[in-house]
């Protein structure tokens, strides 16, 4: 941490509309903040973003939350950032797991339990239900200790119980068919 400054992580949730990032960044600028990372997404018309930034030492988390919430009809959670603490996923091979089928409760719960028990980190997940059919795409990192065939067998057994279709593929096949690179990482 630099002398005289403090780092914060700010989460903002609101109904999606034009100008949210402009309003929030303006409020943070007025507090003397400097943004260092930002990511946003929209689900079901709900906008959410996570912002990381550095602020003068005399700006407290509550000041930031108040400034953001006063910038519009926004809800904000602000946490102080400290280096370390997060458990970064270890090395492994990137795989993509795709599941399709009739929507019903418990599918994500069942499959993510398989990942968790094997120490497989979910790097990203995309989920959509359309006309009663759902599709979920997990991007995961499979640790070297996990045998891809074993995971595939376990997930396919779970998929049979849930009556959904599931495929496990190495991410490189998607990299090769969609980008100028062939591999996710050089061999």
């Amino acid at each position: 941490m630099n002398t005289g400054t403090a780092k914060y992580v700010i989460n903002v949730v609101t109904r999606d509309q034009v100008g949210i990032i402009a309003n929030v960044s303006d409020a943070l600028f007025r507090l003397g903040g400097n943004l260092e990372a930002l990511s946003q997404t929209v689900v079901w018309g709900w906008f959410t973003m996570i912002v990381c930034g550095t602020f003068p030492e005399d700006v407290a988390a509550g000041d930031i939350a108040t400034a953001v919430e006063n910038a519009g009809d926004y809800r904000a959670i602000v946490l102080p950032h400290r280096e370390g603490g997060a458990q970064a996923p270890g090395p492994g091979e990137p795989f993509v797991v795709t599941v399709k089928g009739d929507d019903k409760p418990g599918i994500v719960r069942r499959l993510t339990r398989c990942f968790s028990e094997k120490g497989i980190n979910i790097d990203d997940v995309w989920f959509e239900v359309h006309d009663g059919q759902f599709i979920v795409i997990f991007r995961v990192t499979m640790p070297p200790a996990v045998e891809p065939g074993d995971l595939r067998n376990e997930l396919e057994a779970a998929a049979r119980e849930l009556n959904v279709s599931l495929v496990v593929r190495h991410q490189d096949i998607f990299v090769a068919t969609n980008s100028l690179s062939v591999h996710t990482r050089p061999h």
């Binding site: 795709t98 495929v167 068919t177």
Partner: peptide, 16 residues
């Protein structure tokens, strides 16, 4: 990160 639509396009090529 590969965009989701590209993943879906590749899946369609393979499965259908």
């Amino acid at each position: 990160m590969i965009p989701t639509e590209d993943i879906l396009k590749t899946l369609e090529m393979v499965q259908i």
